[in-house]
Design a protein around this nucleic acid. Structure first.
Length: 482
DNA sequence: CGCGCTTTATG
DNA sequence: ATAAAGCGC
């Protein structure tokens, strides 16, 4: 059945920086004697959500890994910059490629981009083959009985499970051919930050498909069983940390699911732990499908009652939050972890987001922008969806009265203060009793531990009790819609 | 993926 | 008397 239709084809890579389970690459190889694999960098094509600094850092290293993988198979990754449609156009002219293969992206800007490229190629008579690959199901295909998008997660996820989560995976090509087409060097793309901030990221991460599968394997063997409990403790390595690999398509949800199920069957591990982790992939899926149906999700509250919400203009408070100088250890630890590693523990993300939107009453969009710039796993759908979830203005969102108390959460989830001491070394000598609320530390203990609260570590920037009451009041006063 | 108050269980 | 469980916002 595999018949060669084309002498040469272009595979246009975007958020699918992998060789295995890559339908565009797989089918291009099946149908062509020669494939030209290209990555095109163009900030304008992502507008208004051009990649943030941390994502650009990751991209640089992911492309490095991919270049290496491709050349090991005898091929070559072509790098270009400029708008996709014109760049593909000149690539076709230079190479004589007869077809273009890609995996679809579903964000509004990229659907628009796909349409543009598709029309242009159609005019030249160049066939396009596009595929779904980064999600479990193509957005728009999981609908309720009325044929409408789900607005609540649980029925959505049940529908997904009914459709079947496990599918066969596509193998990586066995060999590739080199190409004489001109390519930019990776340095030309200027993806790395000018400040030395990349150092912290370098120590924490290794981008690329191979590492994604190593992490997956390690997670299945070491952490999966304890996942339901361990995932909530930021002081231990209880999560898979696959998020940036998923965000760049170095690994697919299907590959993860198959590995988990295989492990579950072979090792008779706790099926509950498996389901619990799969649910998280479900939330990612739900976020992507929601963004497809409600493209305004990135910029406007999905619950229209929040349209005129009186968010506070408070640049000083926003800055303190960004820099991890609020005086609340769990908030500051999380924000510093984010800055230093480009990642924050999931549970801590909820706590810092609740603090910003409920206690500080700062617009969730400002929080989302900061995450967008600083997260190596920044994903437009998940980021927008989850910020709206915490702010209470999204689909299936947290009820307005669910306001995280950073002290209670900290005591519950980081009882021994492992996480806090790791990210707030200035507090590391404080006994656990005071660590979660250092401003209450008696003078004598402060002296014993040689810490001066207010000097070595800030006093709280706001009062938790009164700001909570204020938020509850404002949310109760939201206008009723008719 | 709360909080705080009330009710109920337990020794 | 205190802790766990229940419940409305």
């Amino acid at each position: 059945m595999s018949h060669t239709r084309y002498h040469s084809s272009i595979v246009w890579l975007r958020r699918d920086l992998r060789l295995s389970d890559n339908p565009a690459l797989y089918h291009a190889c099946q149908q062509s004697q020669q494939v030209i694999i290209v990555y095109i960098h163009a900030d304008d094509d992502d507008s208004p959500w051009a990649m943030g600094s941390a994502s650009r850092w990751w991209l640089h290293h992911s492309l490095t890994a991919l270049q290496q993988q491709i050349s090991q198979l005898g091929g070559r990754l072509i790098l270009r910059s400029g708008p996709a449609h014109t760049t593909l156009d000149s690539l076709i002219a230079e190479s004589g490629a007869e077809a273009v293969f890609w995996n679809r992206r579903y964000e509004a800007a990229h659907r628009e981009q796909d349409r543009l490229v598709q029309t242009q190629l159609a005019q030249q008579g160049v066939p396009v083959h596009d595929y779904q690959s980064g999600l479990l199901f193509a957005p728009g295909t999981v609908l309720n009985k009325e044929g409408l998008p789900f607005r609540v997660f649980t029925p959505f996820w049940q529908a997904c499970q009914k459709l079947g989560l496990s599918q066969t995976l596509l193998p990586a090509p066995a060999q590739l051919h080199t190409s004489t087409i001109n390519s930019l060097s990776l340095a030309d793309l200027k993806l790395l930050p000018s400040i030395s901030w990349g150092q912290g990221l370098q120590a924490e991460w290794q981008a690329g498909e191979a590492q994604a599968h190593r992490l997956l394997q390690a997670f299945c063997e070491q952490a999966l069983n304890d996942y339901p409990q361990a995932r909530d403790e930021p002081g231990i390595n209880g999560t898979s940390r696959l998020s940036p690999h998923l965000a760049f398509g170095e690994i697919t949800p299907r590959q993860i699911i198959n590995a988990l199920l295989e492990h579950f069957i072979c090792q008779t591990k706790d099926g509950g732990a498996c389901d619990h982790y799969l649910r998280e992939l479900g939330w990612r899926e739900f976020a992507h499908h929601c963004l497809y149906h409600f493209p305004q999700m990135t910029s406007a509250p999905l619950n229209r009652r929040f349209a005129a919400f009186p968010w506070r203009h408070n640049p000083a408070l926003l800055r303190a939050w960004q820099q991890g100088k609020t005086g609340f250890p769990i908030i500051d630890a999380g924000m510093r972890q984010l800055w230093h590693t480009g990642w924050m523990h999931n549970r801590v993300r909820m706590i810092v987001a609740s603090f910003l939107t409920k206690n500080a009453l700062i617009d969730w969009r400002l929080g989302a922008e900061w995450f967008w710039d600083t997260l190596v796993d920044a994903d437009l759908a998940s980021n927008s969806f989850n910020w709206q979830w915490v702010a209470g203005c999204g689909l299936d969102a947290a009820p307005y009265f669910r306001i995280f108390n950073p002290v209670t959460q900290s005591e519950k989830l980081d009882a021994h203060g492992r996480y806090l001491r790791r990210w707030l070394p200035e507090l590391s000598t404080l006994p656990a009793k005071w660590l979660h609320q250092p401003w209450k530390t008696p003078e004598t203990i402060q002296e014993e531990c040689s810490i001066r609260i207010g000097i070595d570590y800030p006093t709280p920037i706001l009062d938790l009790g009164s700001t909570r009451q204020q938020a509850l009041l404002l949310h109760k006063q939201l206008p009723k819609l008719h």
